[in-house]
């Protein structure tokens, strides 16, 4: 339990053991110690509800002004006051989903392979070293991944990868001859690199926790190494792997800085992965400092609200699914 990532999943993944007979010690009398804890906890609960409430209420004026078109519309058009402003969050929502989806596909495939390799192919001595390294990498702040993307990858796309795509047969027709260095795909790839250590840190533990007896039983029945991994190890660890996926996905959803640097921050209807776009979180960071007038900030809070609902929905969904799968696993 020494690293942040495993600690995060622990409540969902492996609930602390409840011991029968260990009753709440406060049932008899509440001393100052008890009261302190209760006050602190109430304070936190208050902060949490205030957190949700303030983002909700701050965004109300935008919904009032724009109606549902705030969610379904496209465009970000603060006006000079002569006409009503028009804001639509659809581009940002699609951008968020698109970048996260691409990123999670890459991360899960590569990450699961990596975890299997770490657990089953790597010599035991190397295993702890690699594990520690992965956990350290998971702690690297996202802005560092962001500068790598914008200062190393984007110029490479611009000068090498883009021209190469255009030189392919038919490439010009599909990609044009001038690609921007930044794109939704670039943002998604950097996101994948960024959430990979987070995913591996957990999936490695999950796979490592699969009982050895199962593996040995499968091998002794004549299954090949891969059959064992595919039919025995992965299904056994699926609950944990699912938890790891949803955690990594949550991180991709909310990632602000890397996407703001790499996606280009433009609001438009071309959702091609090689085109520029933006995500909810990145758009807030891009616009916040420059926002003018009385209606732009509420609209940005509305983007925050949508992001919050998406992330809460994700978290509730994953908790539910993990709980259901666990129940099913226990029943069988």
């Amino acid at each position: 339990m020494a690293d942040a990532t495993t600690t995060i999943t622990a409540p969902a993944d492996q609930p602390a053991v409840r011991v029968e007979g260990r009753k709440c010690p406060s049932t008899r009398s509440r001393g100052p110690y008890e009261w302190t804890l209760i006050v602190l906890s109430t304070l936190f609960a208050a902060i949490a509800f205030w957190f949700v409430g303030s983002i909700f209420f701050k965004s109300l004026p935008a919904f009032h002004q724009q109606g549902l078109s705030l969610i379904t519309g496209v465009g970000w058009n603060p006006t000079d006051g002569t006409a009503p402003s028009q804001y639509g969050l659809l581009t940002m929502i699609i951008g968020t989903v698109e970048t996260s989806a691409i990123a999670i596909i890459f991360a899960v495939i590569i990450g699961t392979g990596t975890s299997l390799a770490i657990n089953f192919f790597l010599p035991a001595r190397l295993r702890t070293v690699v594990a520690t390294m992965v956990e350290l990498l998971a702690a690297i702040p996202s802005v560092v991944y962001g500068i790598w993307g914008i200062l190393v990858l984007a110029p490479w796309v611009l000068n090498t990868f883009g021209p190469w795509l255009s030189s392919l047969p038919g490439g010009t027709a599909v990609f044009g001859t001038t690609l921007a260095g930044k794109s939704l795909l670039l943002a998604a790839i950097v996101l994948a690199v960024m959430i990979l250590p987070t995913y591996v840190a957990i999936s490695r533990e999950v796979i490592g926790a699969v009982p050895h007896e199962l593996v040995e039983a499968s091998l002794s029945l004549g299954a090949t190494k891969w059959q064992t991994l595919w039919r025995t190890v992965l299904p056994t660890g699926r609950i944990g792997l699912f938890g790891a996926t949803s955690l990594a996905l949550g991180r991709a959803f909310g990632e602000t800085i890397a996407v703001s640097l790499l996606a280009g921050g433009v609001v438009q209807t071309n959702y091609h992965p090689l085109a520029e776009g933006t995500s909810l979180a990145a758009f807030i960071a891009n616009q916040f400092g420059e926002a003018q007038g009385s209606d732009q900030i509420p609209a940005l809070f509305a983007a925050g609200l949508v992001l919050m609902l998406m992330s809460f929905a994700m978290s509730i969904l994953s908790t539910r699914l993990v709980a259901r799968q666990r129940k099913a696993a226990m029943a069988s």
């Binding site: 957190f51 909310g254 978290s315």
Partner: peptide
Amino acid sequence: VLRTVTATMIGAPSILMGLFAYSV
């Protein structure tokens, strides 16, 4: 309930903390 709140807050995107700090 508090445990659920804690878990949810851990998963909340950090930019929202920025918005929260701004509004409060």
